[in-house]
Computed example of a mutant assay.
Amino acid sequence: MTDTMRALLGGAGPGWEVREVDVPTPGPGMLLVRVRAAALNRADLHMLEGVYNPQAKTGDLFTAGLELAGEVAAFGDGVTDFAVGARVMGVTLGAFAPYALVDHRHVIPVPASLSWTDAAALPVGLATEHDALTQGGFTAGQRVLVTGATSSVGLLGV
């Protein structure tokens, strides 16, 4: 692995810009994931417009992309549930690059039967749907009305 990589950055102008950046090093609790596929969702476009500012965004210049699928390339201290080479999908800022840092609590394993592209399109929708149902107090066996099943969150709810 080289020390630098090309990444798609936001915050440098009106659009995304390709720049050479350092490959990140995983700190405690973090995974370095070799990105095999990344998904584009509405939040990415809102970040580019400057109308969405997630807590993970630490400055005006940021590596774009919020969801990915790939293989664990390295991990920091305290990570015991993932090994190098494990197939994972997750949510993090920085998915539009060959390597991204991901909090180990924000990834789940990718089944062998799931393609990289399909896996990359799931994390934000899965997390949003799970959060909505959990905050709503729903448990297994209950019914819920899903309106607007045309987005990933709605489709996952169905």
Score class of each variant (00 low, 15 high):
residue 148 G to Q: 02
residue 127 A to C: 12
residue 93 L to Q: 01
residue 95 A to R: 02
residue 30 M to L: 14
residue 39 A to F: 10
residue 56 A to N: 00
residue 46 H to T: 10
residue 113 S to V: 12
residue 103 D to K: 07
residue 2 T to E: 13
residue 57 K to C: 06
residue 111 P to T: 04
residue 87 R to F: 04
residue 75 F to Y: 13
residue 111 P to F: 09
residue 131 D to W: 05
residue 42 R to I: 07
residue 2 T to R: 14
residue 149 A to S: 09
residue 7 A to I: 01
residue 74 A to M: 05
residue 31 L to G: 07
residue 57 K to D: 05
residue 126 L to C: 13
residue 77 D to C: 08
residue 111 P to H: 00
residue 157 G to I: 01
residue 125 G to E: 07
residue 6 R to K: 14
residue 99 Y to E: 12
residue 141 G to K: 07
residue 76 G to W: 06
residue 152 S to M: 12
residue 60 D to W: 05
residue 115 S to P: 04
residue 85 G to M: 11
residue 76 G to Q: 07
residue 84 V to F: 01
residue 126 L to M: 12
residue 103 D to I: 02
residue 113 S to C: 07
residue 9 L to F: 01
residue 5 M to F: 00
residue 59 G to Y: 01
residue 99 Y to K: 06
residue 151 S to I: 03
residue 145 L to F: 03
residue 124 V to Y: 10
residue 71 E to G: 00
residue 104 H to G: 05
residue 139 T to H: 13
residue 92 T to S: 14
residue 4 T to Q: 11
residue 132 A to D: 12
residue 118 D to W: 00
residue 158 V to P: 10
residue 133 L to H: 03
residue 45 L to G: 12
residue 149 A to Q: 08
residue 83 A to H: 10
residue 79 V to N: 02
residue 139 T to V: 15
residue 34 R to Y: 06
residue 73 A to T: 12
residue 20 E to W: 00
residue 41 N to S: 08
residue 109 P to T: 03
residue 36 R to G: 15
residue 106 H to Y: 00
residue 94 G to P: 03
residue 82 F to L: 08
residue 136 G to P: 10
residue 156 L to T: 11
residue 154 G to L: 02
residue 57 K to R: 10
residue 49 E to Q: 15
residue 20 E to H: 06
residue 113 S to P: 06
residue 39 A to R: 13
residue 65 G to E: 04
residue 89 M to C: 13
residue 41 N to P: 11
residue 149 A to R: 00
residue 125 G to D: 11
residue 87 R to D: 10
residue 115 S to W: 05
residue 130 H to E: 12
residue 110 V to K: 01
residue 69 A to H: 06
residue 114 L to T: 15
residue 142 Q to M: 06
residue 130 H to Y: 07
residue 20 E to R: 04
residue 24 P to E: 09
residue 57 K to P: 04
residue 86 A to E: 13
residue 148 G to C: 05
residue 25 T to F: 07
residue 57 K to H: 01
residue 81 D to H: 07
residue 10 G to T: 12
residue 151 S to H: 05
residue 41 N to Q: 11
residue 53 N to V: 09
residue 8 L to H: 02
residue 141 G to H: 05
residue 71 E to H: 13
residue 82 F to Y: 08
residue 136 G to M: 13
residue 112 A to S: 06
residue 84 V to C: 06
residue 79 V to Q: 09
residue 64 A to H: 02
residue 123 P to I: 09
residue 134 T to G: 12
residue 122 L to R: 09
residue 157 G to E: 08
residue 153 V to C: 08
residue 46 H to C: 09
residue 22 D to Q: 10
residue 142 Q to R: 02
residue 137 G to F: 04
residue 129 E to Y: 14
residue 72 V to S: 03
residue 35 V to M: 08
residue 41 N to V: 09
residue 34 R to W: 02
residue 108 I to A: 13
residue 97 A to N: 01
residue 28 P to M: 04
residue 148 G to E: 03
residue 125 G to S: 15
residue 112 A to K: 00
residue 113 S to I: 08
residue 103 D to R: 03
residue 18 V to L: 14
residue 146 V to Q: 01
residue 122 L to T: 13
residue 4 T to S: 13
residue 81 D to S: 15
residue 64 A to F: 02
residue 124 V to I: 15
residue 81 D to I: 03
residue 8 L to Y: 02
residue 130 H to S: 14
residue 48 L to W: 00
residue 1 M to Y: 01
residue 143 R to G: 09
residue 124 V to D: 12
residue 24 P to C: 06
residue 12 A to R: 15
residue 132 A to E: 14
residue 87 R to Y: 03
residue 71 E to R: 05
residue 126 L to G: 14
residue 13 G to P: 13
residue 89 M to W: 02
residue 26 P to I: 11
residue 56 A to D: 13
